[in-house]
């Protein structure tokens, strides 16, 4: 198991867990979110190919109402 930070919260995931699987396990809908891994925006097409590494800092963004 490895530890990552998901929006500043400590989360433990199995080795080989992809970014997509992190979202699925947190029941976060894939539609309408964006991912930032260690301060870099990750293209959606790469989410299922990137595996979490120990101490990764993953951030999930979504839309909110705004002008």
């Amino acid at each position: 198991m490895i530890n990552i930070l998901l929006n500043d919260e400590a989360v433990t995931v199995a080795v080989g867990t992809s970014l997509t699987q992190v979202l699925e396990r947190q029941t976060i809908a894939l539609n309408g979110v964006a991912l930032v891994l260690n301060a870099e925006v990750v293209p959606r097409s790469r989410w299922s190919h990137i595996m979490c590494q120990h101490d990764d800092k993953l951030e999930v963004f979504s839309v909110v109402a705004g002008g």
């Binding site: 998901l6 929006n7 919260e9 947190q26 976060i28 979110v33 964006a34 951030e59 999930v60 963004f61 979504s62 839309v63 909110v64 109402a65 705004g66 002008g67």
Partner: peptide, 10 residues
Amino acid sequence: VTLAVKRLDL
């Protein structure tokens, strides 16, 4: 319509 982007509150 405009929207804003924000870090998701889990």
